Computed example of a mutant assay.
Amino acid sequence: MTSELPAAVQQLIAATNSGDVEGFLGSFSDDGVVDDWGREFRGREAIREWSDREYIGKQITLDLTSSAVAGDSATVTTIVGGNGYNGPSTFIFDVSGARVSRMTIRE
């Protein structure tokens, strides 16, 4: 994992790859948002429900191919694996303090 990524992003990616839903949810601020191709899930309960259906529940893995950090934003290019979508994807993480405030998923 790239050491320049904010700790909250590193934690979120590690939790994703290990299937740790509590660690994944703990990476987000209380009012965090997942934007999955324009569909927004706000707050930990909504994120958990989305994750159970489409993310951790699908045993998603993220194999990082590149990353860039600019201010409080990190962009990570990955190859997604698991039992759902498989292929390249870009994740944009907005970080506020020690937590991810927004995770945006794009192609």
Rank of each mutant, 00 (worst) to 15 (best):
T75D: 01
F91T: 00
Q59E: 13
G97V: 11
S27H: 03
R44Y: 00
S18H: 07
F41K: 01
I47V: 15
A46N: 15
G82T: 10
E40R: 15
I13P: 01
V69A: 07
A74I: 06
I92D: 01
G26F: 05
Q10W: 00
R42V: 15
L62C: 11
E45L: 13
T77D: 13
R39E: 11
Q11K: 13
R44D: 10
T75C: 05
S3G: 06
I13V: 14
G87H: 11
G97W: 06
N86C: 14
S18V: 11
G87S: 09
S73I: 14
T104L: 11
V21G: 00
N17Q: 10
I105L: 14
I79M: 10
T90M: 05
E45N: 13
T90N: 08
V80N: 09
A8W: 02
T77K: 11
G57I: 05
L64S: 01
A74S: 11
A7D: 13
W50Y: 15
V76K: 00
D36A: 12
Y85T: 08
V69H: 06
G82Q: 09
D20H: 08
I47L: 10
A8C: 04
F24T: 07
V100E: 11
I92R: 15
I56Y: 02
K58S: 13
L62E: 06
L62P: 03
R99H: 15
V33H: 01
E107G: 14
V33G: 00
A14D: 10
G81P: 09
R39G: 00
R99S: 14
L25F: 09
S51P: 08
V69D: 05
L12V: 04
S29I: 01
N83F: 06
S29Q: 02
M1E: 07
G26T: 05
W37L: 12
V76G: 01
T90I: 13
F91A: 08
I79D: 05
E22R: 07
R44T: 13
D94I: 02
G43E: 10
L5K: 03
A46Q: 14
V69P: 00
A46F: 05
